[in-house]
Design a protein around this nucleic acid. Structure first.
Lengths: 127, 127
DNA sequence: CTGAACAACGATAACGATTCCTAAAAAGGA
DNA sequence: TCCTTTTTAGGAATCGTTATCGTTGTTCAG
């Protein structure tokens, strides 16, 4: 994988953000430094970077996917209204082994655990 | 809400299925009894039924949403390859209160817990 | 029973997020 | 530097879903 100008800045913007941006939000950020980058490039690189395990793709926050500069698994709080994602301050302690010991013909690979809530902005809008 | 022919058969098909079908799969099922139903009607009714709490919409199983005739919350096992959903045979016991007690400006409303895995079909395809 | 009011329909256009396509440009090793 | 390969920009295409709209079916008051 080549470290192109585009790729470097996408990664940089993502790592300096705490907001778990959507692809379009990353695009807007990156355009301030590379005005001619195309949205397709952003999508392609976000995809490549997440497949390489350098970033992570959050697919459970509504219709638009979001991206996280931190690839290690950690607990997310998701706004069920707008899809915004926040990192939880502490990790929960649950017994994964007990949880994944179920009778099924699926090959269990892990669990998905997320907190659901309403962010301050959406909470205000719905008065 | 009126119980139309279309609505009744959609609900019926969904309740007699254990497979958590996508909208298009419901459409195909229903068309065997109502050949002229339109896909839009299926989408509209699945939406209405889930908003009424009569069925549930699963939004976390990939690009297509899936539908469940059972509205009560229960543990799902999701194929991370094709999005297929299976019901888990038993419910996990986790301490919700302990889990949702986090410092955040989001108004926490619940947790999302799902098992991830690979279904037999996908497991076979990937040799 | 009749008809106004309205919910729901089928057909199809529109939409938003994402992916795909292609010719041109950039990267990196020899 | 030159050559090969990867990546790019731009735009078209795709896919799931939602919206629009004229028509049809129900309901219920008169």
């Amino acid at each position: 994988m080549r470290l192109t100008k585009q790729r470097k800045i996408i990664l940089e913007k993502l790592r300096h953000s705490r907001s778990h941006p959507t692809a379009v939000q990353v695009y807007d950020q990156v355009r301030s430094e590379l005005p001619n980058i195309s949205l397709g490039t952003v999508y392609r690189n976000l995809d490549i970077l997440s497949k390489e395990g350098i970033i992570s793709k959050i697919e459970t926050c509504g219709d638009q996917k979001r991206f996280d500069g931190i690839p290690d698994p950690h607990l997310h709080i998701i706004c069920s209204c707008c899809g915004k994602v926040q990192d939880a301050p502490k990790e929960p302690d649950i017994d994964m082994d007990q949880l994944t010991r179920v009778e099924t013909d699926f090959k269990i690979t892990g669990v998905r655990l997320e907190l659901l809530g309403v962010c301050p902005e959406c909470n205000q809008e719905n008065n």
